[in-house]
Design a binder for these strands. Sequence first.
RNA 1: GCCCCUGUAGCUCAGUAGGAUAGAGCGCGAGAUUCCUAAUCUCGAGGUCGCAGGUUCGAAUCCUGCCAGGGGCGCCA
Length: 549
Amino acid sequence: MIKRRIKSLLKSILKSKYPQYSDLNFEIEKPRRADLGDFSTNLALILQGKIGIKPRELAENLVEELKIEPLFKKIEIAGPGFINFWINPEVYRENLKEILKKGERYGAIDLGQGKRVHIEFVSANPTGPLHIGHGRGAAYGDALARILKFSGFEVFKEYYINDRGTQMNILGASVYLRAKELSGEKIDFPKDYYQGDYIKDIAKEALRLYTDLLERKEAEAIALCRELAIKIILEDIRSDLENFRVFYDNWYSERALYEKGLLNEVLEVLREKGDLYEMDGALWFRSSLYGDEKDRVIRKASGEWTYFASDIAYHYEKFVKRGFDLAINLWGADHHGYVARLKGALKAFGIEENKLQVLLIQMVNLIEDGKLKSMSTRKGEYVELKELVREVGVDAVRFIFLSRSHDSPLEFDVELAKKQSMENPVYYVQYAHARICSLKEKAKERGLKIEEILEADLSKLGEDEEIEILKKLSEFSDVVEMSALGLSPYKIVYYLLDLAASFHEYYNKYKIISEDKELSLARLALSEGCRIVIKNGLDLLGVNSPEKM
RNA sequence: GCCCCUGUAGCUCAGUAGGAUAGAGCGCGAGAUUCCUAAUCUCGAGGUCGCAGGUUCGAAUCCUGCCAGGGGCGCCA
């Protein structure tokens, strides 16, 4: 917030003194060292190359008028030509009042200006239960949605269900075979069929529902099994996600795409452009024209459509029919080869490729007893999301999943996540929140009225630690902005850890509630400011803020 | 072979669209509770930012090449 105020001040000076460079890109940043001010800018250093005046001289010139600005306590030129600003502490105290007033809206920004964003995430095929990799995508997509919404975007969350195609038929056949097996028939279960035990459970259910299942024609029986399997598995996926506090605005069925005739419409557009051709009995899209390394099949020689075909139609619809300004897709990193062809398709439609942001989610490695737990989807040896959540809890799983950028592999230490101690970052942050709630209780017991903190005399807050916390609280919206721009929930995580640390430290060193009523109210106001920001931050991650622990 | 990601303290990771003396937690060593939640806090030791060049006032950050780990290169998803 303050950062933006400094920037706009400097911009107007730049405009009046060097109008030809008014669009110059310069930075306002927080220096690492406290003796270099609260903020600093490299403006003069950047400008020197353009005009050839010595940077320090230039800086003097630029800063002249700013010295009377009440935002600042002090301005200095330092080093090679940095301009360092010290903020008037009154500004931070004013900000605390704003936090108390705004409450759960504090930190919200209007970066998105109502732009409509579509977020598609998880979208696991309904062929088996969600595993922890899907869980990471779920936490990431959901947190992103919350952050973007808080940043002024209009967000739509969608789960795309691949409920047709070869894999579904294999699923149906897998269930059917297991059903035969259950009724005593000897079978040979193919390697590329779905191996998991859940298939047997579904087979059992199929036999119960359709008593004549095995007397029916095979194709018919397999179709019944397929439909039942999709229904049961989707229900399971949905309930896993809801338990994980992930809710969608829409579940989009791939079949619906075909039923709407969307695919034909899209193919017509491509055909007219001459971007389709037949070869070896298959239908190809000339994705190589649009940056892909080769052309891709959209209808196999067998006559079946590939998933790519549906995806083209689906994304065409996202932009052209549904009018989203931005679409964010979260995929497993193993889909990376798929990005170029999809973006290629968008280009063919004249859709700017930056409108689609594909975030590839790297692996989750579970560490148990200090050892890597190996996972193999093929053998059905993966850890299910529900299992991990049951063991560790939603809050810890979400917090840890969100603590890394999507493009870094994530090490998940199960023992650590379960620990209820300072080593566990989730508890560390939540504990700060609970502690402040307990402080408020205590204050009430001592006859202080919590409502009075709104009128507290904040000039009592003068200790270094207090100013430090005030500053951090004022940075929250900057963190939200960076987090939204970078599509990076982990920045919120690190900020919260930092803020919680500052609060714990402060709490340990100073008495919040004392005999001095005015001072107590001021410190309670500061504590409440911390609580609000921690709560707002945790909300963005979908993590609870307990009042007692 | 080609493409993507990663490489910073013993371990797990930050490092804000190149900035001023590289940061945190854990682990290790030493301490703090008659007192608001010790699920906390304080102090200390710990670094050739994978390697080599380049770009410039300035590089952990950008470019090139190499090394190591992971993933991907299907008419599979």
